[in-house]
């Protein structure tokens, strides 16, 4: 008879090796394919130039700015919203209500992005257009608002988890001292769970960076460097989605590898940061 325990152990091991190798292979593949770009500083040219295919200029600078603006703005909306919601769920609301809220939030994480995109196109875009008299209504503001909707549920779940993970003794202590729920929140819960908050923030930052559909559907995809948040912009991800359809062997097509590498490096840095924070919080416990 085969030793079942060993067999299971081995198959798990193989699965782990396989998925780890896959990530690594993708990285090598990206580097390999974009190698011609690094010769002669083309990589940095692409990073800094505008996108003018009809003049033979294939820079992704406008997309870089577009991405940063949309992502940061969406975090600005999502962070206070999520912090408030998770405080409501884990501190203020009565148990039954908070359970219901939590269920709703969990459900929201499962809604496909394209649905949010759709809602954005048909509800939010016309609203922003008329409200702010803002061109087509497909702009950085609209995309960031919708993106905030997409990343909030994840953030709320991570926040509430970290709020509920503070040591029971601390909570009991403040109850014994006669502290109110708000005092408990300010003096115990928030100071104890700042790492969870940071982790949630970083993870949703990564999610917002990587999201393609929202920006593709409602940011307008213009290639000009945006002057204000009411202007249409293109993100690195939607640029990849738009250009990958264009051409297989042009510089135009190569430029998307620059986008890919920038995104890859950004995500890697974020993940390392999360790992680092996780280790720090382990040490503290």
């Amino acid at each position: 008879m085969i030793n079942t325990g060993k067999f299971i152990e081995k198959s798990f091991f193989i699965a782990a090796i396989f998925s780890a190798a896959l990530t690594f292979i993708i990285f090598v593949f990206m580097i390999f394919l974009s190698l011609p770009l690094f010769k002669g500083g083309l990589f940095f040219n692409i990073l800094g130039n505008p996108w003018k295919p009809e003049h033979g200029i294939f820079g992704v600078y406008p997309m870089l700015i577009g991405t940063v603006l949309i992502v940061l703005l969406s975090l600005c909306w999502a962070f206070p919203l999520s912090l408030g919601s998770s405080v409501l769920i884990s501190v203020i609301a009565p148990p039954r209500f908070s359970k219901l809220l939590k269920k709703i939030v969990q459900m929201m994480t499962g809604i496909p992005t394209v649905i949010y995109g759709f809602v954005g196109v048909f509800l939010l875009v016309p609203f922003i257009r008329e409200m702010f008299n803002a061109g087509s209504g497909m702009n950085i503001l609209t995309a960031s608002l919708m993106l905030a909707m997409v990343i909030s549920p994840t953030m709320i779940i991570i926040f509430t988890d970290s709020f509920e993970n503070i040591p029971q003794a601390y909570s009991d202590a403040i109850d014994a001292l006669g502290g109110s729920a708000i005092q408990k929140l300010i003096y115990v819960i928030l100071p104890c769970s700042w790492k969870g908050i940071l982790t949630g923030l970083i993870l949703s930052l990564g999610r917002a960076m990587g999201d393609t559909l929202i920006a593709l559907m409602i940011a307008g995809n213009a290639v000009a460097v945006p002057d204000s948040i009411f202007e249409s912009a293109r993100t690195l991800t939607s640029h990849i989605a738009l250009v990958i359809a264009a051409d297989f062997d042009s510089i135009e097509f190569r430029s998307i590898f620059t986008c890919g590498i920038v995104l890859y490096m950004f995500t890697t840095i974020l993940i390392l940061l999360v790992r680092f924070l996780g280790r720090m919080s382990l040490k503290n416990k």
Binding site: W51, V125, G220, N221, A222, S232
Partner: peptide
């Protein structure tokens, strides 16, 4: 002639139709 770089991009004839149908100033 040149097409302005502020133009919005859509990816198909169908998407163009629905974009214009939704934008009174498009």
């Amino acid at each position: 002639g040149e097409i302005t770089n502020k133009a919005n991009f859509v990816v198909s004839n169908g998407a163009m139709k629905s974009a214009i149908a939704n934008d009174p100033y498009g």
